[in-house]
Amino acid sequence: MLTGKQKRFLRSQAHHLSPIFQVGKGGVNEHMLKQIQEALEVRELIKISILQNCEDDKQEVAEQLAKGTKAELVQLIGLTVVLYKASKNNKKIELPTRG
């Protein structure tokens, strides 16, 4: 679980990122989750955009993405989801310590 301080830090890190995945009419599926997991292992922090034609609720989509990839939901702003998952082999982001 991330602290508020850590989430703020990650939001500032994600600000300049562009979304690299899109959730459309088909919603969230296994293939997409696998690709997102691989991207998280490499990048740790990614943005995903939810398209207007997505039939599912954006909050549900964000939660499905986080749960399906075992990542932390950093932010859902508008139709953009920010996910974070510490990488096992490519650790780049140093989170502020709790306190």
Rank of each mutant, 00 (worst) to 15 (best):
K25E: 12
L2S: 04
G26S: 09
K7P: 10
E63Y: 04
N29V: 01
T80I: 13
E30T: 03
R11E: 15
E55A: 12
Y84W: 07
R11D: 11
Q37T: 01
L83E: 09
N29Q: 03
S18R: 14
V28Y: 03
Q22P: 01
R98H: 13
N90V: 02
E94Q: 11
H16N: 13
R98M: 14
L95N: 00
A66F: 05
Q75F: 02
K88W: 06
A71R: 00
K88D: 09
E30S: 06
L79M: 09
E44M: 04
Q22G: 08
L51D: 12
K25H: 11
A62F: 05
I50V: 08
I77T: 13
L51W: 03
V81W: 06
K67V: 10
D56P: 01
K7L: 10
A14N: 13
C54H: 02
T80R: 12
V82Q: 10
E94I: 11
K5Q: 12
S49W: 06
T3Y: 06
T97I: 14
T3R: 04
A86S: 11
T80Q: 14
L33K: 03
I20Y: 02
R11P: 02
P19T: 06
L83Q: 10
L33D: 01
L73H: 01
V42R: 13
A14W: 08
K67P: 02
S49I: 12
R98Y: 12
Q64R: 13
F9L: 11
L76A: 08
K5A: 09
L83T: 08
V42N: 10
I77S: 15
L10Y: 04
K92M: 05
L33F: 06
G24F: 06
T69Y: 02
V82G: 12
L51C: 09
Q13M: 14
R11S: 13
Q75H: 08
R43N: 14
K67I: 10
L45E: 09
I93P: 01
K58N: 15
L76C: 11
K85S: 03
K91E: 11
Q37G: 01
L76T: 09
L95K: 02
L45H: 09
V23I: 04
G24S: 05
V61M: 10
R43W: 02
V42Y: 09
V61T: 12
K70L: 08
T80K: 12
I20F: 02
I77D: 14
Q52N: 15
S12N: 15
R98C: 11
G4I: 10
K91M: 08
K92P: 00
K5H: 07
I20P: 00
Q52M: 13
I93R: 04
Q75Y: 01
K88V: 07
G68P: 09
I77M: 10
